[in-house]
Amino acid sequence: MNELVFFINNVVIAGSVTGSIYAIGAIGVTLIFSIMRFAHFAHADIMTFGAFMVLLLTTAFPAVGASIGVPTALVMLPLAMLLTAALAVGIDKAFYKPLRAHGVKPIVMVIGSLGVTLMLQGLIRLFSGTGGQSLYVDDRKEIFRIALPFEGVRAPIVITEPQIYLFVITLVAVVALHLFLNRSRLGKAMRAMSDNPELAQASGINTNTIVAVTWVIAGALAAIAGTLLSLDVTFKPDLSFFLLLPIFAAAIVGGVGHPYGAIAGGFVVGFAETLAVFNWNVLLRPFRDSLPTWLELPSNLAFVGTEYKIVVPFFILVAILVWRPTGLFKGKVI
């Protein structure tokens, strides 16, 4: 039983945490892909920027959260979402719109977004330094230990305060996005444009508005993902290259241009990562006595070491590109 608790702590909870973060990031990537038809490489840095805004605001007003009883970083999150959304729209106006107006190939947009990545990285590091910082400036990170009411179970299930917030916020964000895309006029226009931009324009949809709305949503979601990730661990300015691959893998696994697919893809990639670095020997230990004597289990039965975690999303990406390039849910853009 203790082994099972260990499994829950290290795979179920950890996998849901990374899965939620990848899912929120991948939604933004997939929306941009479906409206503007290019892979937005600067997305992970927009996430970092959102987290950095939260860090700045929290450092400026560290005591706000204590009066309401939530961490200050969470109080500052909506403000950071606004700022990040504004940044995303501004980047589009300054860098991507002129390129679009020239009618360049999508791959040139990709290179442009890499340029934006470097600019954001440079700016963030210039102002924050290169080290890691905690978003809990004045507050304390609560850790809940839930003891299970079974006999012989000594290890508790461990879950931290930011992880609970993370699950709640992910759920709220996903439901809100679902309602927006299916119920609101703008959301329907967005889906129409992702299906067929010319037809959407011909039927009187203002494509400029849709592009701006896409950036607002993508920016706000990126701020959420970046902040939640930094709450769970720490804020680091150089996260982006390690986030990009899993997020793109998640978007492609779910089928590019498919927001629900991106959510599923995020959890697939998140769980695959945690399952791959989990030491399976722990689960087999209770059965050690019943195993035949010639079979001696090595002490480390993980598929990959934690240092090779990045291999997992890459492997998933290659596998999906080889066997099903449209993704699990048949994305529209190949």
């Binding site: 290019f38 999508p106 290259f241 390690f242 090779y308 890459f314 190949i334």
Partner: peptide, 27 residues
């Protein structure tokens, strides 16, 4: 793997393989 597909996928995959090669050599 990638050249028959959208050109963006090649960029994503090469970005990934570069980080993997570095991780492998480093560890």
């Amino acid at each position: 793997v990638c050249l028959g597909l959208r050109s963006d996928y090649l960029a994503i995959a090469t970005l990934g393989i570069a980080e993997i090669i570095k991780a492998f050599l480093k560890n």
